[in-house]
């Protein structure tokens, strides 16, 4: 066996060298010690914080649930109110519609009476106007006929007679 082979060959195929066991055991203890001293408190602290956070979330969820239930209650209440309001509005609308209908009928009846009266009045007025126009037209035609008759009957002798009569009448007056 050469010198190199002699150095690389251990005394047991499973156990390390004694000094390795010693130093390994010491290093492991040191690492575990450090872990216990520094990491375990941090882990505890993190777990505590996580617990608080989860508890807060649980509380918040409970609050949200209570709020949701309250809102659901309010909504149910509002639905009930809306239904009653709708019923009230419908009832009022019915009353108003009946009143409007009644007023409308009354007004229509009144307007009908007024229209009839106005119609009667206009018929009378038109009758009077037509009568007046007819009378005026007859008068105009009569006047024109009289004018024509008088003008054609006024001879020179008649004109002179009218003038002489005027002079005599004026001369006699004082």
């Amino acid at each position: 066996m050469s010198e190199v082979e002699e150095v690389m060959q251990t005394h047991s195929w499973i156990w390390p060298e004694p000094y390795e066991i010693i130093f390994g055991t010491m290093a492991s203890g040191l690492i575990f010690g450090l872990l216990i001293k520094f990491v375990v408190p941090l882990a505890k602290k993190a777990l505590t914080a996580r617990t608080v956070s989860i508890q807060a979330e649980l509380d918040s969820g409970a609050n949200d649930l209570a709020s949701a239930e309250q809102e659901a209650q309010d909504i149910r209440q509002a639905i009930g109110d809306i239904a009653s309001e709708r019923a009230r509005i419908l009832a009022e609308t019915n009353v108003q519609a009946e009143a409007l209908l009644r007023d409308g009928r009354a007004r229509l009846a009144q307007e009908l009476v007024e229209i009839q009266e106005r119609g009667q009045s206009e018929i009378v007025s038109i009758g009077l106007r037509v009568s007046d126009e007819l009378r005026a037209e007859i008068s105009r035609l009569s006047g024109a006929a009289i004018d024509q008759v008088v003008r054609t009957s006024l001879t020179d002798a008649t004109q002179q007679e009218l003038i002489e009569n005027f002079i005599s009448k004026v001369g006699a007056s004082r």
Binding site: S142, G143, I146, L154, L162, I167
Partner: peptide, 28 residues
């Protein structure tokens, strides 16, 4: 038309056929 209408100052003496006809027409 016929006759005379005389106006002296504010006095009017009307002996015209025109006026008589107008009177007849207004009565009509």
């Amino acid at each position: 038309i016929g006759g005379i209408v005389a106006t002296v100052g504010d006095t009017v003496i009307d002996g015209s056929i025109r006026t008589r006809l107008d009177n007849v027409k207004s009565r009509l």
